[in-house]
Design a protein around this nucleic acid. Structure first.
Length: 516
RNA sequence: GAGAAGCUAGCUCAGUCGGUAGAGCAACUCCCUUUUAAGGAGUGGGUCCCGGGUUCGAUUCCCGGGCUUCUCACCA
């Protein structure tokens, strides 16, 4: 590392606690012990030791001459009894108590014990045994410092499942997730679950013969969705690029190329507001299957949710906030306009035949239902307002909302014999949109017309429309088989399974404004 | 972008009707070799988010700023 010009006055800003630990660090060093050794050999998982030495149900007592074990982890509790101490150490698999004193430790190891702090990472070897009070423990005859803790961690004490102190500062949990993870078992469980969800989804699709692919995240045209993109710049080519808002148009190019079952699960980027449901970068899965349609995608959607709940939670019923969600299929299905009519009495269906349905008329209707639509520019924005205000929040149990107006679905195929509605659906759970799917439009000339319509909607004031991608139209001219496509927001899915109300609780490092 | 709330010891929080502040845990010293929210005795620890203003005096009141959270707006 290069030195930065001025000498950083590290000592000046070091707090008292850190200074104390630095002096312990010095003491360890000056005794010739490396506080950051290169390795610790033979570490066993704490959970494995517990299972092997103390039994599946913690009902075995190791023999006096039981084989010694070795493990390592962070010191999360110290109970000092004088010349011996009880420690609790934690690794990824769990916690175990360690009993260590001068009778069994060598002089150097005992010195380390005397200079131990909460948060230090140690490696131990010793004999598994049970204490008088029955606690599964390891009687250490070796204790090595593996990493000295200089920035003290919050202390979490627990009894009978109740937690004392700990850390609850939300900002600190997001900014310094490593502390959150080190200290809060709940946080570790959430992200372990997230990882398991990703694995199970991939596994599920691979078993069904899907192929995972990667398409560009930097794109010259940000299309496939209606959203504001981030811009970036490539120096050598001297061109501006967009971070993708969706992989959709590239995945369909692969169907054109002849792959029949593909999916991509990765990040999208949208330059929009941040909320409990929105993070600027978020994870989405998009799935495409040739010779299939939106009905196929409905099955896949329900199967994925059911598979995840059965595999990971052992049940199709799950708690979410005040609710109990049942993911068992078949889910309820309802038409988009029908759902609005049901909830508000407003019938927008009769406008479907009109070339240019009147915004003014729509606003009048919206106002009669108590909706504030003043700022909106197009007819369909008003309709969507009615849906998101009056219908969406009440879709707690899994619901498939289907048959959207063509005007707001530029990539979806029309229902045969219906000029105005498309074969599209969105699954809703807990009042949140979880995905979006349709029978993919594969008529290149029709696609071109739809792109043009989007452009003219933009000209007439719509905030968000889809960009035209001419090469994608060319791809469709080469010929794409009838295809079903599906997108699912992974972060929101994880929120459901982890019972979290903020998207930041399921993203390891959510975007925050930099401090200072 | 707007409104509301919050920001005090390493952590969780109290408090000061304006007189530079406290608890528990953590830390430090000492006692204790089967404890477990270990226990006992003692000690230290603060830019009260930042900057101005009013005032003899501001952590407290006023103004401005920062960051976070919630709601709204934006947004599939």
């Amino acid at each position: 590392m290069a030195q930065t010009g001025s000498e950083t006055p590290a000592e000046v800003s070091v707090g008292a606690l850190e200074a104390q630990r630095l002096s312990k660090l010095e003491a360890i060093k000056s005794r010739g012990i490396d506080p950051y050794p290169v390795r610790f050999a033979g570490k066993q998982n704490i959970a494995d030791i517990r299972r092997e030495s103390f039994g599946e149900n913690n009902d075995l007592t190791p023999a006096e001459d039981a084989a010694h074990v070795a493990t390592a982890g962070r010191v999360v509790a110290i109970r000092d009894m004088g010349k011996a101490q009880f420690l609790q150490i934690q690794d990824q698999s769990g916690r175990v108590q360690v009993y260590a004193g001068n009778k069994t430790l060598g002089e150097d190891d005992y010195f380390v014990l005397r200079n131990l702090d909460l948060g230090d990472i140690i490696g131990i070897k010793g004999r598994p045994f049970r204490t008088k009070t029955g606690e599964a423990s390891i009687h250490a005859d070796e204790l090595k410092i593996l990493s000295k803790n200089l920035a003290p961690l919050p202390v979490v004490k627990e009894k009978d499942g109740e937690t004392y102190d700990g850390i609850s500062d939300i900002e600190l949990r997001y900014r310094q997730r490593y502390i959150d993870l080190a200290v809060n078992a709940e946080a570790r469980a959430t992200f372990t679950l997230r990882s398991a969800i990703l694995r199970e989804i991939r596994d599920f699709l691979h078993r069904k013969g899907f192929m995972e692919v990667e398409t560009p995240m930097m794109q010259a045209i940000a299309s496939g969705a209606a959203a504001r993109p981030f811009t970036t710049h490539h120096n050598a080519l001297d061109i501006d690029l967009y971070m993708r808002i969706a992989p959709e148009l590239y995945l369909k190019r692969l169907i054109v190329g002849g792959y029949e079952k593909v999916f991509e699960m990765n990040r999208n980027f949208r330059n929009e507001g941040i909320s409990t449901k929105h993070n600027p970068e978020f994870t989405m899965i998009e799935i495409y299957q040739a010779y299939a349609d939106y009905n196929t995608m409905m099955e896949i959607t329900q199967d994925i949710f059911e598979h995840l709940s059965v595999t990971l939670l052992g049940s199709t019923e799950m708690p979410y906030g005040q609710h109990t969600i049942s993911l068992k299929k078949p889910w309820k299905k309802i038409g988009y306009l029908e759902s609005i009519k049901e909830a508000t009495g407003l019938d927008f269906e009769k406008f479907l035949g009109e070339e240019n349905p009147s915004v003014t008329e729509a606003k009048k209707m919206a106002a009669s239902a108590g909706l504030k639509a003043e700022g909106l520019h197009t007819f369909w924005e008003v309709v969507d307002l009615a849906f998101s205000e009056k219908v969406e929040p009440n879709l707690i149990q899994p619901t498939i909302v289907m048959h959207y107006p063509k005007a707001i679905s530029p990539l979806a195929k029309s229902i045969p014999g219906n000029e105005h509605l498309v074969e599209r659906f969105e699954p809703y759970i807990t009042g949140r949109e979880m995905g979006n799917a349709f029978s993919e439009l594969n008529d290149p000339l029709e696609q071109e017309r739809r792109f043009n319509e989007q452009a003219s909607q933009k000209a007439s004031g719509a905030e968000e429309t889809m960009e035209t991608d001419d090469d994608f139209v060319t791809a469709l001219k080469v010929g794409m088989p009838p295809t079903g496509g599906l997108g699912i927001g992974i972060d929101r899915l994880v929120m459901l399974f982890a019972n979290k109300s903020s998207i930041k609780d399921v993203i390891l490092f959510p975007l925050l404004r930099p401090n200072k």
